[in-house]
Every structure is written in structure tokens, then in C-alpha cells.
Design a protein around this nucleic acid. Sequence first.
RNA 1: CGGGGUGUAGCGCAGCCUGGUAGCGCAACUGCUUUGGGAGCAGUGGGUCGGGAGUUCGAAUCUCUCCACCCCGACCA
Length: 574
Amino acid sequence: MRASRFHLATLKETPVDAEIISHQLMLRAGMIRRHAAGIYSWLPLGLRILRKVEQIIREEMDRAGALELLMPSFQPAELWQESGRWDQFGPELLRLRDRHDRDACIGPTHEEIVTDIFRREVNSYRQLPLNFYQIQTKFRDEIRPRFGVMRSREFIMKDAYSFDIDKDGMQRSYDIMDQAYINIFDRFGLDYRAVSADSGAIGGSTSQEFHVLADSGEDAIAFSEQGDFAANIETVEALPPATERSAASAEMQTVDTPGMYTIEDLANGLGVSAQQCMKTLIVEAEDGGLVALVLRGDHELNALKAERLDGVASPLRLAQREQITTTLGSDIGSIGPVGLNLKAIVDHSAAVVGDFVCGANQDDKHFINANWGRDCDEPVTADIRNVIDGDPGPGGTGQLKILRGIEVGHIFQLGQKYSESMKAAVLDENGKGVAPFMGCYGIGVTRVVAAAIEQNHDEQGIIWPATLAPFQLAICPINYHKSEAVKQATDDLYQQCLARGLEVLLDDRALRPGVIFSDMELIGIPHRIVLSERGITAQQFEYKGRSDDSAQELPLDELIAFVDKLYPDQCAPG
RNA sequence: CGGGGUGUAGCGCAGCCUGGUAGCGCAACUGCUUUGGGAGCAGUGGGUCGGGAGUUCGAAUCUCUCCACCCCGACCA
């Protein structure tokens, strides 16, 4: 590709509303453009990368025996009513009506459609196992789309659905997909982890997420430093502390704490540690009332654990501020378990703190030296917090380490949830109708692109892993339009690259070298060759890998051999 | 949906408080010079100042009202 004929749309300045680095670089490199909240076009450069991701996925899915098909975005409501999800799904499901007033939605996922296909097409256990997949546009009307393509409303997903006659078969299909995912993520060249996870709204039991590790990731993953345990933090049990509660050493006192509303304010204001403070969160109860959840100040609430507790509304909802002030008589920021007129559930580790600081249920006042059992009832305890760095691993052995990740893949065992509700049965060997066991397997294709950048960039721009790069090699002539020698050498190299099937970008724009270099670095092409009058005279060319510290000068007559070595598989002689 | 904020040229911004009909840098276009790390000079084009209403002789500026977008608020690929 000649740069002069390509739409290189790089931006020198960073658009202000791009928050994270991948979003900024995607805009600056001219990969994507935004039309509305969470709605993006992929420009030619971005699309090349997207296609690389898709192609790797496609090859590995095919290799794993899955069959590609294509399902519609527009989906009739009837199918969703059959599965029961028309009512279950929240406003994330974009619903609409056609001109005949028929209800429909834009598909956020395709269990209903694929199950409908299956029940029409497949009748016998002999046709199983079966795995259908597609790479297709999804729409989820997110409350708050952000981070560009990382969390957009319209996005591309690879979704696969397996069908088996029994549980063992489902497990086998799941294991095959697990391996296929490992192959896929290996080929992306990204640092990732497979972790066990909660299965969320899709339903089902066993489930595993694939996370690309990046500090900016929205998810926290807990690893065991010994052994191979890895799980999304939301699923990891926080073991009750082995230590006894520390004894009370002083009488409880009320102190004035004007303007101190957060644990941080309180800890700084009173000169105590966050561990010594109680964080009291008020959430909605199942019966419409309120429940208090009490945590140690340095811990965070785990919503999944909390919403499973008896009496707590599921999904978890924090109480409205108004309801708190009218029910409790004090504002958020001054609530505490002592003298609280509500059912309270206390985290195990909060229950062993003695002489703690907590809200006095009176605006701008807190208690110090409060103690469980003395100043209030013995606590009802439960595990309601997220684990933190250094917590004991599962079974109490080893320590947990927390890393941040971007969820780019998720595999589930669905069981018979959809096959039963939608009456998709096949005949087994006894001629009896059986609802097949399903699995579903997703990869956020567009998100993979953003995650790859999030993990691989520097001050100059993107550093693509070789398998995802939009071009494999950049040829940067200096004075292409002025020097006949440079033009000759460049065109010759370009033709040789094309003959080898290399994806090469020849920057033949009449620009100054600095501009060319900056652009090539910004868009992240892995290899760069510079040809100049000076070099040709000295019978040399210059090479620099995208993440190399400096360039090297090499003999010009070895140029083609050198290029062949960059991508040996593609350029093998013969 | 709640809280906070922002809308002025493709991008980044100033002007607004103290009304007088729009400016800077980058980008784009033309010409000349320049050519190994985002060049210089000269010139050109581009904005109903988010929309609407109001106040006023006069509104980017003041008021009201819509709209869009961004950030924070536990949600997924």
C-alpha cells in the first residue's frame, strides 16, 4: 500500500474527551471516529487490525470444529419471550417496533436465535456435538458507554454456541473451546490470563473469563502466588480472619466530625488508620426496606456476595439518599452500626476490630472506641467484601495477588436453560426427546483491539504485536520525490515485498522525514526500513524495530535477505 | 436514571464576568524556499459561536428552555 493512496488520518493533538490511552491513540492514529455516544466507525487503518483479530479467531474456531454462520441483529420479540429474557433483560436491551407494530430488539447476544436455528435444523443426537459461531455486530444500550471502543454500545463479537446430548459432552465441547481460546490469545501475542468467573446474566454454571492484563483494566483478578488459582475478584471468598477480636481498651466517646464524609476524611481527621474505621453502606432490602452492610474502612463491598444474602435485594441497589435520611435521620457519611435501627450484616474482618470508629447516626458526629457486643449487639457476620492483596488464598494457603485486567473473552456452560425454555429437543438413541446441553463462548473482537493497545504502547504511539499489526513493514524513503536513486531503490524494495505477499506500507508522501517517522510510530508498524540518498551512496539501509532503542545501519545488498528474515514463514524461498 | 461539567472552524483553545456582530495555534489549499525527527515565508478558504425563544437599538456574551457530549455513580465482550 502506498501511503499517498491510503487514508492516513493521523492527529497531532489528542482529542480531549478520550480518557484512556487506547482511545486516544485509536483516534490519533486514525483508526476510529465517533458519531454518537458509544457509536464508532472503523476507518481503513483500524479495520485492517480488526480483520487480523477476526481472522485469527476464525482460523482457530474452524480448527476446533466450530461452524461459522451469520445471524441477524434485528430479532423478533417472540423468541425472547419464549426464553423469558424479554422481561428479564433491562434497558440494556434496545427494543423497537417495526411498521406493523411488532416488538423486536437489536441483539445484544444470540442464544435465542441460535436455539431457534438449532430446533429447526437438528433432530438427532447423531448430529451432535455441534458448535455454531459467528462474528457479528451486537448492540447493548449501556448506561454509560466510555473508553471509546472498549465499552461501546455497538461492537463486534465472536459468539459461539455448542450443543451436546449430555453434560459430559457439554464439558468436552467446553474444554475444546477453552483450548481454542488459549490458542487464539496466544496468537494475539498479548499477556492474558484465563480466570474462573461468575456467569452473570447469561445464565449457567461453570464459566471462565479471559483477561488481557493492563493497569487500566476495569476488572480485578486475584491470583494465588503459589499454585495456579486465578479468578475474577468478585468470585473469590475472603476467609474469616484467624485472629480473635482485639479487646476493648477504652470507653466509647462521641466526637465532632464536621465535613468528614469519607473513610479517608475520617482516618486523616482523627489520625487513625482506615482499618480502624467502619464503613456502613445502606442497601435496599428484598421487602423494600433497608439493610446495613458494615465493612472495614479499607475494604470494598462485593456486590455479588451481598446480593446473595437473605433479605438483601438482588440485584444489589444502594439505597437512595432521601430514603436514608428519612429512615435514619442522618445523612450518608455519619452512619454506623452502634444504635442503628436496621438489620446489619457485618463482614467477618470488620467483626474482629476492637475500639473502632464509626458514624454516630447523627450528622457530623462519629463514635470512637466503639466495640461489638459492648456498645451494640454481637454482629451477624458474612463474607461481603472483595479480597485484597495479601489475603490468604483458597484453603488458607499462600497469599493472593491482585492484578487488573480487561475482559475480552468469556466461556460458559449454559446447560439446558435455553434448550428447555425454547423446546429445542433432539431424539436420543432410544428415540426419546432430549433437550441438549449448551455452552456459549464470546470474544469481544473490537475490545481486543483496544486492549492490545492498552497493553502495548509508548510515548510515540502504538506498538502492535506482529500478528495484529495493520502493516508488517513500513518503508520510509527520504526525498522520494527528489532523488531518483532513492525512488529506484524504494520502488524496487516495494515490489519485492509485494511479490512476497508482505503487507507493506510505503510512505511515498512528499513530507519531511520527521513527519513520516512520527506517523509510522504512532500507527505502530513493527518494522521500519529507511532508504536515503546518503545511505545509498554508502551502500547502506537503515532498520529499526518499533520497540528498539535505536536504528541500525546495514549493507544495502543484504536488504532483501534481511526482509525475508523478518517474516520467515511468509518469505521462505521457493 | 441521579450528581458534576462542557458545547465557539477538522483538532486544541481564547473571547463571555464588564453586550457593539469572532480570534489564536495546529490541520487544509496555493506559491516559493527547505528536506534524517512533527520546517520557514507569503497568501487563501472555512464558523447562522449546539438548537429555539426572550431581554435589548444591538446577544458568542445576559435570561429561559430544549439538545448533544464528557466525567463520577458496581457492569460486561
